[in-house]
Design a protein around this nucleic acid. Structure first.
Lengths: 337, 337
DNA sequence: ATGAAAGCGCTAACAT
DNA sequence: ATGTTAGCGCTTTCAT
């Protein structure tokens, strides 16, 4: 049923020109005389010619594909953010003429995945999303001089030369904290991640900065736990008993949900009795009662910046990467009054 | 820095065999004498040879890529399900030697996306996820005789010959309803989608079946609304006033969240005063207080079945598609007592 | 402005 | 069991 797809040669014959002229009509139309161009374009339209990617890829040594490794399904904010980011990336890439190739693999298999795709010329570059300290992938890619753009700062090496885009988490939590201070709160507690998380410490610094700015002390007002609902629940219960905060700022929506659990158990109303702010503006923040105030990462902008870097990187072999830090926004909902 | 990647010819020379023998060593090792195979494999390992995909794709007319269109970001369960499914699909595909290529586009642009990828031989097949009534994509793919597997039944054409995999939504809501009936509830309300949604009507049928089975009436106990939190909130408020249900079964977690809003506003406790069950076992169901009982789709199984169909489809040109209906499970949480 | 020649790296088909 | 030949469809280089 599906007849053999037309090739460059078919179009050339139909239009009465050489194959090369057809190729130019597709890739460098300026080289053709207008009437020739028109004739070729008509032939292309009539035959429904579409260039064969494999042949083009072979010849040009480029696939116009960018690889993105999907981390194993994670609970918490990672999933929510990941999904939104992937959408934005796919959308933005398309406009730049790229498609996104997804692959999987953890630990050693992840490296194998990168290596295989790179060496087999399946992708032109990678987008790397988890650049936590000592991430073997980023290190490997750097050593390999593989073209990649990171969503996330190179926390462990500020001098890293690869292009990256990140969101200023500290600015986000500072924004959330100020919002609460402006509402009259003076006892604002923090629930964040363990100290070995660079991202967690960054977000925490925004909270403490905002408090110090107003001459308020942070002593005894912070807790560092795992990124789970139950950890958030327990931490908030302890803080409520020991520090008597009137508001919580959390490093993630997951932790903020834990706070909401504690409030529900104690018959306290979020937003009226105790204010709560989360981070990521996940689905959960949007649909939970009464609506959770949350810091929102500009993932669409991140995707745009990532793709722009990708284009520079691929256009200029000697491209020296730059870092770009974007500012999040605060989505205010009833949980902060 | 990166020296030219070794080719088949380099390996052949290094091992003292012909290029074809190296090709066979990679693709049909059984054809080689053990000692030759070993020699070639050593040469491959030493040179770090990896076959060039573009060249292989050109020759074999296959890309080992499956295309998946990402629908625009949706609120509600769609996102949650989409993310889990994509993960599963990527994971499963890898084991079958396929990668997933993501693309975007809506309406007319969506068709263009399919057409372009197909004609340019960028992908071998597609996975289609939104097979709602009159979906122009599925129709187009069918007419085009493009290889694809659908996640979702061909509701508008039961005789459709393409392979599909779907989850038995009616079985899921029936399970949820029975669970509530077993708990002693006799007044179980339904909040679902508008009547033009096949999926919505299917899910609704499971609820009514379970009630009728126990000789209970469904009259006045159902509401059909948009899939939003506020719709669920309003519908549940009306039902509570007019039908006095002691439990709700919802077509989505989004609607169930709306019910939770109403309960919170009235000072009613989910699970103690009123039972609530949702659908999709989304992140929201997991983290909301006190935990939302929800029907969980076996997306990992769906992905496995989809990939299996894909393999059959691509191995057998004349493959006649089959449908496969999988059964969901019920994740019980405190919202149902 | 257009065409001819060459070859990217691989594998199917056919020899030996 | 291994080698030889041919060519997938395209673009780069060079000639006209």
């Amino acid at each position: 049923m599906p007849v053999a797809a037309p090739t460059l040669a078919d179009v050339a014959e139909s239009a009465g020109v050489s194959r090369q002229t057809v190729s130019n009509a597709v890739n460098n139309p300026d080289l053709l005389r207008p009437d020739t161009l028109l004739r070729v374009q008509e032939a292309i339209a009539e035959l429904g010619y579409v260039p064969n990617r494999a042949a083009r890829n072979l010849r040009t040594r480029a696939s116009h594909l960018v690889g993105l490794r999907l981390s194993p399904v994670l609970e918490g904010n990672a999933t929510a953010v990941g999904d939104r980011f992937v959408h934005s990336l796919v959308w933005t890439s398309r406009e730049a003429g790229y498609h996104v190739l997804l692959f999987s693999g953890e630990g050693h298999a992840a490296i194998d995945g990168y290596e295989d795709l790179l060496r087999s010329t399946a992708v032109d570059a990678f987008v790397v999303t988890d650049t936590y300290l000592g991430n073997p992938q980023a290190t490997w890619l750097r050593e390999r001089r593989a073209p990649f753009v990171a969503f996330g700062r190179p926390w462990d090496d500020p001098d890293a030369r690869h292009p990256w885009v990140d969101v200023d988490g500290a600015a986000g939590t500072e924004m959330a904290t100020r919002h609460l201070l402006d509402k009259g709160h003076t006892r604002v507690a923090w629930i964040g991640w363990r100290k070995d998380s660079f991202i967690g410490e960054d977000r925490r610094s925004g909270w403490s900065r905002a408090l110090h700015e107003r001459g308020l002390s942070t002593t005894g007002m912070a807790s560092r736990v795992e990124d789970t609902v139950s950890s958030g629940r327990e931490a908030s219960a302890v803080l409520l008993d020991e520090a008597r905060p009137s508001a919580f700022v959390c490093a993630s929506d997951t932790l903020a949900m834990g706070v909401l659990h504690t409030l529900a158990e104690r018959g306290l109303q979020p937003g009226r009795d105790i204010a709560v702010a989360g981070f990521d503006d996940s689905q959960v923040a949007q649909v939970v009662h009464p609506g959770l105030t949350s810091v929102r990462q500009p993932l669409e902008e991140v995707a745009v910046a990532v793709v722009r870097s990708l284009e520079d990187l691929l256009a200029t072999p000697s491209y020296v990467g730059e870092g770009l830090l974007l500012t999040p926004s605060l989505t205010v909902r009833p949980s902060t009054g």
